[in-house]
Amino acid sequence: MKVIINGESIQLPDTVKRVSLLLKHFELEQKVVIVELNQTILDKSMHAETVLTDGDRIEIVHFVGGG
């Protein structure tokens, strides 16, 4: 399926059906990341059950240095 991650159109393998699998796909499962799906922020506990669908707009953000 095709989704938009951080503003970029990305083709995902068919096996990547949930948010938790998406993070695993990009090797982010051990990282401190926050996921927003179609403007809804997901709690970590929701990652495993949240299903992805074609055309989803996903934001994956993290903490960077700042003042």
Binding site: N6, F26, V32, I60, V61, H62, F63, V64, G67
Partner: peptide, 20 residues
């Protein structure tokens, strides 16, 4: 410590992050 929130470069998962 203050931090900023930014989009992650998902294609460089191994980029070092100070928080870690």
């Amino acid at each position: 410590l203050t931090f900023a929130v930014r989009r992650m470069n998902i294609f460089e998962a191994n980029q070092p992050n100070f928080l870690e």
